[in-house]
Design a protein around this nucleic acid. Structure first.
Lengths: 206, 206
DNA sequence: TGTTGTAAATACCAATTGGTATTTTAAATT
DNA sequence: AATTTAAAATACCAATTGGTATTTACAACA
């Protein structure tokens, strides 16, 4: 009994994953530049040797975080759930609502991990910028796909431009999270959500 | 000829203003935490003595920047121009358009100074958070005022909630600037602007 | 089982960080 | 003109930053 794997005193993949996990929160709270490698080390109970073995530089850690963690989070939170809805427009609205309601108060104050990094790093690091734009495209492109499906199924005007609308919707999400970071009030989030809902309803046929 | 004032070798108010001006750009580009006091000093050709005479700590500089510089910028860019329009809704849209078109490419990539600071500092510094929320309220409250005026003048549905709509509009502005930071494409900004315009038109009587 | 590659620990480093104590000097006040 | 106030310069500081060189030890493989 007990998996042999867990008894190993060394597990490089797990170590790497732990670093990424702790780094995610550290960066989520403090931002990338202000996040301290030493702090991350303390919280993982690892040492410099382990860290810089897996990530040649702090920036490489950031890049991996965007490519792996953030990309996966976006898909999990914003795209994959839409598959469950016959009407994608409804899916977008209901999913957003669910996420608003299920997010803990303290996390509300931290905003959107992707948006945070875009705001901080895109202007000053071209590699970050490129990788973040790719994840953003996963998001926008994903929404776009479902908006096209909505058009086919007759839930969205043929005249609407799915790409433009997808950009608008993602922008709304990011804006709402950003705004909530200041007010820290779920009511504001709900209010913004209601406005978006109103708008989307004007785009439905009949 | 020549103003006597300019010949003074010392001018504390000017020194303070120069620090704020240079610090604004430094923080606009790098963020508050990553902005270096030494860099700011170099670019102003001043010394530590001057800096810490005017601002006891780096944080105090940040607070002054929000209270003075950012507050004034928000009024100048987003609120005061609305006075020129008979239809405030039109004013909001046209003013946004003007700002999109007149912002230099490189500044587009830097986003919105207020939004940047909100994202970075609100979660980790309660004083920043309070001051930033005050400036945000200047913005939202200002828009709200003109939306009420629009209702009185018959340009906006009586059923619309000016407060909620003002929050939505400001959120749109911040979201659009944030998004542009990633894409660095004025087209995206225009596209987002068009969506907001569409939405506002659905709220006009008749 | 002995060898080898690599995961991880340790100890160190130069550079930079925000900040301070002291001194100089310019301007306002008497 | 002498004195006082405060603006600004200088030189310094401890703490922290990301990063490296070296060593130790575990685990897969021959």
């Amino acid at each position: 009994m007990g998996k042999a794997v867990e008894k190993r005193t060394r597990n490089p993949e797990l170590t790497r994953a732990r670093i990424l996990e702790v780094a995610f929160m550290e960066i989520f709270v403090n931002g990338f530049q202000a996040a301290s490698v030493n702090n991350i080390l303390d919280k993982t109970n690892l040492t410099k040797g382990a860290f810089f073995h897996h990530f040649p530089t702090k920036q490489d850690l950031g890049y991996a975080l965007v490519d792996e963690t953030l990309r996966e989070m976006v898909l999990d939170r914003w795209i994959r759930p839409l598959e469950d809805y016959e009407n994608p427009l409804e899916g977008i609205i209901v999913n957003l609502r669910k996420i608003i309601d299920s997010t803990e108060e303290k996390h509300l104050a931290l905003g959107c991990p992707l948006n945070n990094l875009v705001q901080e790093m895109s202007p000053i690091d071209p590699i970050f910028k490129k990788k973040l734009a790719e994840v953003l495209e996963v998001w926008v492109g994903g929404i776009e796909k479902y908006l096209k499906k909505a058009q086919v199924r007759g839930y969205l005007n043929k005249e609407s431009n799915p790409r433009r609308l997808a950009e608008f919707i993602v922008m709304n999400h990011e804006g709402a999270f950003g705004m909530t970071k200041s007010t820290c009030d779920r009511k504001v989030f709900r209010s913004l959500h209601a406005s978006l809902k109103d708008y989307l309803q004007t785009l439905t046929p009949n």
